[in-house]
C-alpha cells in the first residue's frame, strides 16, 4: 500500500487565486521524489497541504493509512511527528546550541510541560549525538546555531527532522540558499537517508539538473496542476518546456549528460 496518497487535492486562497487544483499523487515507501516547477506554481503549497500546515480546500490526504484531513488536533500532532520537514532558511533557534535545536524534533512526542521545560531522556540525547556525528557535525554540537555556515545549518535541520523518527521528509527548497558545494553535500545526505533508512523524501527544487540527477521520480507542477509525473529518464525537453513555459535553451540548466532524457 502507498505511504501517501493525495486525491483530488485543491487549495483555493480566494475566488480568484487557485494555488492547487485536482492533485492526484500516490507515493510509495522509500521513494525519492523531486517536485519541480516555476516560482509560484504551487510547490510549497503542495508540500504544506500534505501535513496540513496549510489547510487544503478540498480533496483527500491519506498518510500511512489515516485520512489526515479528518483527524482531531491531537491525532494530527501525532501524525506530524512522523513527517519531518526541512526548509530553505533552516529556521533554527539562533540563541540555542546545535544539540538543543536537534532535540526540538522530539517535542511532538512529549507532554506540554515536559516539552516546554526542555527535558529530554538520555536515549534521546544519545540519538541526537549519533545523528550529529552521522551528519559530520560532532564538533559543532555545543556551538550556538547562528555560528554555523548555511550548509551546516541545513544539516542541523536534517538532524532535527530525523530525530522525529519520520516515515517521510518534506523538503522545501533545501538547497536554494546554499552554494553548489554545500548543495551537493545536502542532496547526497538526503539520498543516503532515503536509500538506507527507507524514508520517503519529497523535495521541492528549483534546479532541474539536481532534480534529474538525484530523484527516482519527477513531478512537474505548473499553475497549480501536475503536468508531469514520471521518471527522470523519461522526461523530454518539451515536457520541461511545458513545466516552465519557456524554451529549454532559455533555461539555465546544464543537461550535459544526454542520458538524462530521451528527447
Amino acid at each position: 500500500m502507498a505511504l501517501l496518497e493525495l486525491f483530488n487535492l485543491s487549495k483555493r486562497y480566494d475566488q480568484h487565486t487557485i494555488a492547487l487544483s485536482d492533485i492526484n499523487i500516490s507515493v510509495n515507501k522509500g521513494e525519492f521524489i523531486a517536485v519541480i516547477g516555476p516560482s509560484g506554481a504551487g510547490k510549497s503549497t503542495l508540500l504544506r497541504c500534505i501535513n496540513r500546515m496549510i489547510e487544503p480546500t478540498n480533496g483527500e490526504v491519506t498518510f500511512d493509512g489515516v485520512d489526515l484531513l479528518h483527524v482531531k488536533r491531537k491525532e494530527l500532532r501525532r501524525l506530524r511527528t512522523k513527517i519531518g520537514m526541512i526548509f530553505q532558511h533552516y529556521h533554527l533557534v539562533n540563541r540555542l546550541t546545535v544539540i538543543e535545536n536537534v532535540l526540538h524534533g522530539r517535542l511532538g512526542y512529549k507532554s506540554s510541560v515536559v516539552g516546554a521545560l526542555g527535558i529530554y531522556t538520555k536515549k534521546e540525547k544519545e540519538q541526537a549525538i549519533q545523528l550529529l556525528r552521522m551528519l559530520g557535525l560532532a564538533d559543532q554540537m555545543y556551538k550556538r546555531s547562528d555560528k554555523l555556515s548555511g550548509g551546516q545549518k541545513q544539516r542541523v535541520g536534517i538532524a532535527r527532522a530525523l530525530i522525529q523518527d519520520p516515515k517521510m521528509l518534506l523538503c522545501d527548497e533545501p538547497i536554494a540558499s546554499l552554494d553548489p558545494n554545500a548543495s551537493k553535500i545536502i542532496m547526497d545526505y538526503l539520498q543516503k537517508i532515503s536509500q538506507s533508512l527507507g524514508i520517503t523524501v519529497i523535495v521541492n527544487l528549483h534546479q532541474v539538473d539536481v532534480a534529474l540527477q538525484y530523484s527516482d521520480r519527477i513531478i512537474g507542477v505548473s499553475q497549480g496542476q501536475i503536468v508531469y509525473d514520471g521518471t527522470p529518464t523519461d522526461i523530454t525537453q518539451e515536457q520541461i518546456h511545458q513545466i516552465y513555459g519557456s524554451d529549454f535553451d532559455d533555461l539555465m540548466v546544464e543537461m550535459n549528460k544526454e542520458k538524462h532524457y530521451a528527447g
Binding site: N51, M53, R77, R78, L79, R80, T81, I83, G84, M85, F87, H89, H91, L92, V93, N94, R95, L96, H104, G105, L107, G108, Y109, K110, S112, V113, G115, A116, L117, G118, G157, R160, A161, Q164, L170
Partner: peptide, 27 residues
C-alpha cells in the same frame, strides 16, 4: 522571531506551550 521557526516546530508536532518556551522565549 522568524515565523519559520514556529512553522518548523508546529510541523514536527510541537504544541503552543512547547513552541513558546523552547523557541520564542529563548530567542
Amino acid at each position: 522571531l522568524d515565523d519559520g521557526v514556529i512553522e518548523v516546530l508546529k510541523a514536527s508536532g510541537a504544541n503552543w506551550w512547547q513552541i513558546v518556551w523552547q523557541a520564542v522565549i529563548p530567542s
